[in-house]
Design a protein around this nucleic acid. Structure first.
Lengths: 342, 342
DNA sequence: GTGAAAGCGCTAACAT
DNA sequence: ATGTTAGCGCTTTCAC
C-alpha cells in the first residue's frame, strides 16, 4: 500500500501524533524533530490521505459550484438558449483562486424544478461549502442548504443574510448610457434582459439615471426586454426595426443578446459602427470573438469567481463573522464599435 | 452528529453489517429485513458518509478532468488565445453522463511546463480516474499517472495503450471539402490549425482525399496553418488576401479560427455567403452565435465527453479489459453560409 | 515536547 | 441469513 503517517513515524523514530502535529504545522514540536520528520516525509514521498483526514475532521476540503437551472436538458449553446458564459468565467476564477490551496472544486448542474430537493453534492456531504449561481433559488432553498451545515456564497446577486458577490448592475446601465450620450447619441435602444429579472431592471434604472443626469429627453430612449439569448436579441431588434425605429446606438444587456443583435444587423447589411453603434455587456468569449472590435462593459466575471472563492475561504476561517456583501464595479472597455455622433 | 449506519442498525434491530449489505444491494439479505432496513433509512434520513466509505474501499467515487495547458496564466478568451470551448462542451457531456451515478467530477487546470510533476488531484488521491484533455501530454506523463493506480481516459486524440475517445479528424477535412466541391467550389482555402498539430494534419489529409476523389486540381486549394485562435484565423486570411488570393470558399479548422476569419471579412466588407462562402469546424457556442447562420461540421464535443465518461465507468468495472479506442464521426450541419457556385 | 490511545463511519472477512 | 470484529489513515484529547 501507500506510505502512511505510521511509516513516517517509524522511519523518523517518533510517534504517529508527532508526525500529525508536524504536518499540521503545530509550533509545539521542537524545531529539530520537525526537520527530521519533514525530511523523512520527503524521502518516503508521503502524501496525506484526504479520505482519512475527511473522516476525522469532517471537512472534505472541497467546495461545490451549484449551477441552478430551470431545465436540465437544454443544450447550453444553441442560439435560442442562454449561453453559459457566466458559468465558464466564474469557474475559471474560482479555480484560479483555489490553486495553491488545499481545496478542490466540484460542479453540479441542479434543476430547481426537478424532484430532488437538494443537489447530490450537498446531500452526500461531499462539500464544505457551495457557490450558488444561476439566479434560480429562493430563501427556502438557501435555508435548506444552510441547515445541512454547509456554507453558502451566492454569486451574481445579493441576498439577505448570506454572503454574496455580485456586479453592480445599476452601474452597468449607467456606464453604457453615459458613454453613448457623451459621444452624442440621442436615439438609443437598450435590450437589457428579461422583464422578470431584477438585474435587468437595475441595468435599466442605471441607464435612466445617466439619461436624467445628462438632461436628455427620454423620448427616443427605448427600453426593451428580451431573454438573455441570441434569439432574444435578434428578435427584439427585428421588432424594433419593423416598427420603424432607427436608433443610432444599441446596447445589448448580455453578450448573448448582443450576438443576436449583430446577426440581425448583418442580415440587414447595416454596418457597425458606420450605420449604427453597438455596445455590449459582459466581456465573455462571445464579445471578444465578435465580427468586429466590440466596445463592451466588462462584468469582471472571473474576478467575480475569485472573490466568491476568497469570501468562502474567509467564511470557513471565521464561521460566524458578519455576512459579507461584495459588489464588483463594472468598467468600460472602449474598442471600436461606437461612433462619435456629429 | 449525523445519523450513521449504527443508528439504522439499532433502530431496525439488526447489525451494522446487515445495514451495510442492504445499502450495497447485496441479495444475501432476506427480502423482509431489506425492506425493514430501507424503511428506517428513509425514516431517519440516513445518507452514507462518503469519506468513511472512501477510507475503507479506497475508492473516492470521484473523477478528475485534467486540462493540460502550456501556460496557466493566459486568459481563456481573448482573441489571441485558444478559446476553451472544447473544455466547456466536454465538461457538459461528462457531467450529463455522471448524473444519476454516484460519481462526481473535479476539474483541474495543469501546466505541464510548471514545476509540479503531477496534478494535485492525482497526488492527493482525490480521484479514481482522470480524463486527460488538451493534447499537451506525453507517454512519460501518462505512465506516471497510471503508476499511481489511477485510470486514464484520453479525450481528443488516440494514444497507444490507453483508453481514448476522439473525433475522426480526417473525416472533418473530408466532409468539408466534399461539401464545398459538390457545390461547385474550386478555389478553396483551408485554415486547418497549427502545423505541429497532428489533428490539424489529419484534417488536411482528409481534405486532400476528397479533392483527389473528385478529381479536382489541387492548384487552387490553399492549405494554411495558423494557431487555433481568433487572431490566428484573422491573420492567416489577411495574409492570403494580401497575396492576392481570392478563394470562393474558406474552411476554418476550429470555431476560434473561423471567428477570426469572419472578423477579417467583416472588416473588408466582404459579405457571406454572397461574396465568399464559409464553413467551420466544431459547433461550439462560437459558431452558433456567429453573425450569420454558419454551416459547420459538428465535432459532437458533448458526446465526446459522454463517451469518455462511459469508457471510464466501464474501465472501473472491468479493470483489465482490452483498451478501448472510440472514434466519433463528425457530421455536417448545413446552414446558410455556403453558396452554390454557378 | 512527545507518546498512547480512542474514535471518526464504513466495509469485508470470518463466525455463527 | 445475519452478527462480530478488525481495520482503513488520520486527528485529537489526555498523560507523561
Amino acid at each position: 500500500m501507500n506510505v502512511t503517517i505510521l511509516d513516517i513515524a517509524k522511519a523518523a523514530g517518533v510517534s504517529k501524533s508527532t508526525v500529525s502535529l508536524v504536518i499540521n504545522e503545530s509550533d509545539k514540536v521542537k524545531l529539530e524533530t520537525r526537520h527530521k520528520v519533514w525530511q523523512t516525509i520527503n524521502k518516503l514521498g508521503y502524501v496525506p490521505n484526504m479520505a482519512a483526514r475527511a473522516l476525522t475532521t469532517s471537512q472534505t476540503k472541497t467546495f461545490g459550484l451549484i449551477f441552478l437551472t430551470s431545465d436540465e436538458t437544454s443544450l447550453p449553446y444553441v442560439l435560442d438558449s442562454v449561453p453559459e458564459t457566466l458559468l465558464y468565467d466564474v469557474t475559471y476564477g474560482i479555480n484560479a483562486c483555489l490553486k495553491n490551496t488545499d481545496y478542490s472544486l466540484l460542479t453540479e448542474r441542479f434543476s430547481v424544478s426537478g424532484q430532488a430537493k437538494l443537489p447530490d453534492l450537498i446531500k452526500n456531504k461531499r462539500v464544505d461549502g457551495v457557490f450558488l449561481i444561476g439566479g434560480l433559488y429562493d430563501d427556502a432553498f438557501i435555508n435548506l442548504v444552510l441547515e445541512q451545515g454547509i456554507h453558502v456564497v451566492i454569486i451574481g446577486r445579493r441576498h439577505e443574510g448570506v454572503d454574496s458577490v455580485s456586479v453592480n448592475a445599476n452601474k452597468v446601465g449607467y456606464l453604457g448610457a453615459k458613454y453613448l450620450l457623451e459621444l452624442g447619441h440621442r436615439q438609443i435602444a437598450f435590450i437589457s434582459g428579461p422583464a422578470y429579472s431584477s438585474i435587468s431592471q437595475e441595468k435599466q434604472n442605471g441607464f435612466a439615471a445617466a439619461v436624467a443626469e445628462k438632461g436628455v429627453n427620454m423620448e427616443q430612449i427605448y427600453f426593451i426586454h428580451s431573454p438573455y439569448t441570441g434569439m432574444g436579441g435578434y428578435q427584439a431588434l427585428k421588432q424594433l426595426w419593423n416598427e420603424g425605429v432607427r436608433p443610432t446606438a444599441i446596447f445589448g444587456g448580455s453578450d448573448g443578446i448582443t450576438a443576436g443583435m449583430i446577426r440581425f444587423l448583418y442580415e440587414q447589411e447595416i454596418s457597425v459602427p458606420k450605420d449604427v453603434s453597438i455596445i455590449s455587456y459582459e466581456e465573455s468569449v462571445l464579445s471578444t470573438h465578435a465580427p468586429f472590435s466590440l466596445t463592451v462593459i466588462d462584468g469582471h466575471k472571473m474576478q467575480l469567481g475569485e472573490m466568491a472563492c476568497m469570501t468562502m475561504i474567509n467564511r470557513i476561517k471565521k464561521q460566524n463573522a458578519q455576512e459579507v456583501t461584495l459588489i464588483i464595479e463594472p468598467s468600460m472597455i472602449i474598442r471600436g464599435s461606437v461612433k462619435v455622433m456629429g
